[in-house]
Design a protein around this nucleic acid. Structure first.
Length: 474
RNA sequence: GCCCCCAUCGUCUAGAGGCCUAGGACACCUCCCUUUCACGGAGGCGGCAGGGGUUCGAAUCCCCUUGGGGGUACCA
């Protein structure tokens, strides 16, 4: 059987970490088995759905490298199918109209809670007489459509992550609403569980891979598959991504959308890698650092964990730094350039020079955005910080700088420059460290940064070294 | 409340009854490299939630307790 899986986000927010991770597992599974990975936008909640969110989801998935097969499906355009399915269920008596009012239902739930019972619909309109129905309709009462769920029903499935699962119909909360309230002769807006099943059937989905927060939905949906006479797909309920406090990661946790991570300077490679590591333990041969294609070659739910995993910034940062450190100058320069420009830095230098700068900065970057502050002394004309000012006043520092300026060679040569620093220290009668810190302070305006000689060489390359050295002299 | 799920270092995890004196990664600490900051290298700290069983033998199997999470919509 060929594998067909899907990711079905609702466009009510930007692409979320949790959604992206579910997408990763789906993608991995599809690629592992040479199947299809499909995309369905569940935009039936018109109040909350927005085009901008759909765009965020699409660009985010592409950015991560999660390419989908076939044309994406918009759930809102499949409304007719959903209604037909509801009509069919109505026709076979597996669904019925419930005329209970909201007030009536609320009163019922309050009574249940007062009696310390689980809130549930008591199936009161399941067997209405013709007279009662006629009376409600004469009243003009609208109705929802409910799907019958017998309390005695036993729902069993083999979960690819959790093994054998069992759910009782009695724990599903009574007959479930599958169509919103509407005039009694119509069928209202189809609801989530029904739409999902109808669409998954239509799309030929063979494996439903989603977060464990959907387990109860699975029990309901399995019943719907039977009622609609469709074969049941396999299910895999993946562990959730938890926040620092151990709760399900939500928008309230601050940075949770893929767009946010991208803006901060995390790479798609690191994020994809990290999402794999959260909940799945790769076989040892794969190691911890890998790309999606490598993971896809060995992915399986047998190594997916059951317990939720806490999102760990430190690990993601480490992974990201590893990705950045492995980049060559040209690649890194291309990634940094837009950020330099956005920060208003001067980027008129030749690309080759910028690549050298990127390569110099590379090892100290954790996120791409770090490359902005760190490049500032090279691309701009930074004000020296306090520590630098102090350094330039250190006994003998000025003398040494003057020596350096007086004896500087025309063409920059690292070993010559190094020798010059030694000579300057001797001439000024100070330790070499004083000279090195002094030159650094003069050139960069800071005391910390990448290798001094390489930094110097770069500034020399754009004719900035003399000017800065002179400016540092009183 | 009710239903379901889960439980190994601070975090992510390896572990399928003897290979476990519980392994790895991140974080943290120390040292080396480096007259800066990083990178890199070497080492260290640190854990089977508790209690009962089963077994010659349990991190691994069973039960209970505790703890944590998810779900309980006319949202998706």
């Amino acid at each position: 059987m060929s594998v067909r899986v899907r990711i079905a986000p609702s466009p009510t927010g930007n692409l979320h970490m949790g959604t992206a991770r579910t997408a990763v597992f789906n993608w991995l599974f599809a690629r592992r088995h040479g199947g299809q990975f499909l995309l369905r936008i569940e935009d039936t909640d018109r109040e909350r759905s927005r085009q901008a969110f759909t765009d965020s989801i699409l660009t985010g998935l592409r950015w991560l490298g999660l390419d989908w097969d076939e044309e994406m499906v918009f759930q809102s355009r499949r409304n007719r199918d959903h209604r037909e399915a509801i009509a069919a269920l109505l026709a076979t008596g597996q669904a019925y109209r419930c005329y209970a009012t909201e007030a009536e239902l609320n009163a019922m739930r309050e009574a249940q809670q007062a009696a310390r019972q689980a809130p549930r619909y008591d199936n009161r309109h399941r067997r209405l007489s013709h007279e009662q129905i006629a009376a409600f309709q004469k009243e003009g009462r609208p109705a929802v459509v409910r799907f019958r769920i017998d309390d005695t029903e036993e729902i069993l499935w083999q979960d690819m992550v959790r093994g054998p699962m069992r759910w009782r119909g009695a724990d599903l909360g009574g007959d479930m609403v599958i169509a919103r309230r509407a005039p009694a002769h119509e069928i209202g807006d189809p609801l989530y569980n029904l739409a999902v099943v109808v669409d998954d059937i239509a799309m030929g989905i063979t494996h439903v891979i989603r977060g464990e927060d959907h387990i109860a939905n699975t029990a309901k949906q399995l019943l719907l598959y039977n009622a609609l006479g469709a074969p049941q797909p396999s299910f895999a309920h993946t562990p959730l991504i938890l926040n620092k406090e151990g709760r399900k990661l939500s928008k309230r946790d601050g940075v949770t959308s893929i767009d946010d991570f991208q803006a901060l300077g995390y790479t798609a490679a690191a994020i994809a890698n990290y999402m794999c590591l959260l909940g799945w333990s790769p076989p040892v041969e794969l190691g911890e650092r890998f790309d999606l294609a490598a993971a896809a070659a060995v992915f399986g739910f047998d190594r997916v964990n059951k317990a939720g995993g806490r999102f760990d910034w430190d690990k993601l940062k480490w992974l990201n730094s590893q990705v950045l450190h492995a980049m060559d100058g040209a690649t890194l320069r291309d990634a940094l350039l837009p950020r330099w420009q956005a920060a208003g830095l001067n980027t008129d230098q030749p690309p080759a020079w910028q690549e050298k700068l990127a390569a110099l900065l590379g090892p100290s970057l954790v996120v791409l955005q770090d490359g902005v502050e760190q490049a500032r002394p090279f691309l701009g004309r930074p004000e020296p910080d306090d520590a630098s000012r102090v350094q330039l006043q250190v006994e003998g520092c000025q003398t040494a700088l003057r020596h350096v300026l007086r004896h500087r060679p025309q063409a920059f040569e690292p070993s010559a420059a190094k020798a010059l620093l030694t000579a300057a220290a001797r001439a000024a009668g100070v330790r070499k460290g004083v000279v090195m810190k002094g030159v650094r302070a003069a050139l960069l305006g800071r005391l910390h940064g990448p290798d001094l000689l390489l930094s110097w060489e770069l500034l020399h390359g754009v004719g900035e070294d003399d000017r800065r050295l002179r400016a540092a002299l009183q």
